[in-house]
Design a protein around this nucleic acid. Sequence first.
DNA 1: CTGAAAGCGCTTACAG
DNA 2: CTGAAAGCGCTTACAG
Lengths: 342, 342
Amino acid sequence: MPAIGDVARLAGVSKSTASRALSGRGYVAEETRLRVEEAAQRIGYIASPDAASLVTGRTKNVGVVIPFVNRWFFGEVLEGAERALLSAGYDLTLYNLAIGGPERDRVFDFFLARKRVDAVIAVGVDLDEREVDTITSRGKPILALGGTAPGAPRLAIDDRAAAGLATQHLIQLGHTRIAHLAGAGAGSAARSVQAMRTAGFQDRMSAAGLVPVGEPSGVIEADMTLPGGYSAGLQLLGHPGARPTAVFAASDEIAFGVMRAAERLGIAVPSALSIIGFDGHEHAELFGLTTIEQYPEEQGRLAVETVMEWLGEGYGEVDLATAGVPLATRLVVRSSTTAAPR
Amino acid sequence: MPAIGDVARLAGVSKSTASRALSGRGYVAEETRLRVEEAAQRIGYIASPDAASLVTGRTKNVGVVIPFVNRWFFGEVLEGAERALLSAGYDLTLYNLAIGGPERDRVFDFFLARKRVDAVIAVGVDLDEREVDTITSRGKPILALGGTAPGAPRLAIDDRAAAGLATQHLIQLGHTRIAHLAGAGAGSAARSVQAMRTAGFQDRMSAAGLVPVGEPSGVIEADMTLPGGYSAGLQLLGHPGARPTAVFAASDEIAFGVMRAAERLGIAVPSALSIIGFDGHEHAELFGLTTIEQYPEEQGRLAVETVMEWLGEGYGEVDLATAGVPLATRLVVRSSTTAAPR
DNA sequence: CTGAAAGCGCTTACAG
DNA sequence: CTGAAAGCGCTTACAG
């Protein structure tokens, strides 16, 4: 494994000069630089990142903390972030954060507290102050993408407004018997994404003088997955008497599950039941699902660019003020919603 | 940021002793060890992994090369690997490998060639010799999980046999008009997973004296996604005359797409069309999909354990001979397959 | 069982 | 514009 000394010797310069030539920092005669680069090329020299990190304090590595890999939204964010990081010459270290418990503490206290990453992007998780502190106290910036992290900058869509828009869509179609399938945790974690979506739903319902309809309260929490939506849907739609004519699902995956439940129960969509989802899942088009689109892959990229900016990686073009909160969403109407049955 | 010197001073020992006490390597008096550990604890000392790596040559980091994050199989593998790595005290660096091109070269020549990882797990990708070489020539072991990597150890299910089993299931149900929706690339990359599944299909068809049925050849390549299966399904099932009575889809995601296509075309499943998938997708049960299950999360864990064994991390319990090829699969019969219509 | 010293492979002031 | 030297924070022979 060639070291910088080998390059220097071959190029007939000192290690200092070789280092400057290769890194582009400091003065080096053009001709010398060429000679050094050639030498490096010739022997296949690649600088040891560990040695470099040790002296610069920079690792060229960003940690991504994420609660799931296997849900559409998160997978997209991860792919977007990975691509952006790679093209900036950074590694991505993945921390798949379990919801809580000792594993979670270990990620913060052991893994992230070491100096292995230059920054942390926390995707869709709600961090507490201590967790944020563990990271920032070591001088590493942290960015929350969705989710919350007290004291840390945040990049997010306006979940509350967007959920309001979804609800409004149903109301405008003349629905009055509307239910909401909230994401699990909407009732507990007060400022969570799920809670904001539920709040947005309730905003518009109240404004329209409506009350959620369904079993038991018109707002049912569902695991944010297709099976979660399916069983919540069965529960919601199982009682013919109290059945809503429209449902706002907190995610497209929940919505797909409700569609499946409706199919099982013989409830026609959209004629007997309108369904609107949230996310812009890649299957939404195929299933004709009306939804609030957001753009997670783009969000992942944006998060990386923001962090690169912080780290002084000269992404001069990124206008943080413009790129900032709230991120883009869009109502896309398809065939799963229609006017209320009369 | 406290360094080991601070710990040593506080404990009243030398840095050498502090290092030994903390790492557990070499002799240290029990009483001394306690004192050092206490000191470390007190000032919140965490060893710099960069400095340690520089001298030991070990990074406690494993690179995972994976073509997709957002497909069920890959997401599961990733989660399984991540969990196992974390509990072994290792970081996971994610390389989301684009199918080819300069990005891909960059991952091998720049990212993986540096000494940032102790080993590489390549999931579901087909590496060429040069790529394997870049890694092994730097003294780093590489493990192929599914996919292929010439010269590198491989952990995989027996795709060919398992695909044969799926086909056999349809044949035993009395089907003679059987089609196969292959994964894209089955025809080109000779030893790929997709090709093996197609080969397994053809093995059994020939053995039964059957010929694939459908449009145009009875074997259609589909993108291994739900939309991919949908459009291939539409193509396959669109001509009422040449329609098969059973389909073996190379993945559950393709199978879901075919189910959707059948629904669109008004073809009843399973009475008019039996469908069997491959993978054991988390939604298979909900959709009543008969499939060949495999266990990707477990596979990810197993891959990590194998690599840990190589790295001497004392996973003594793992019996590589037993854990080895081929990994477990199982035929799970649900409601998407039934006897051939007569 | 413990400590002094060397060294891992870089980068960065500092002189020149 | 270039080089000698120090130092980043560890670990590991080697003596004792």
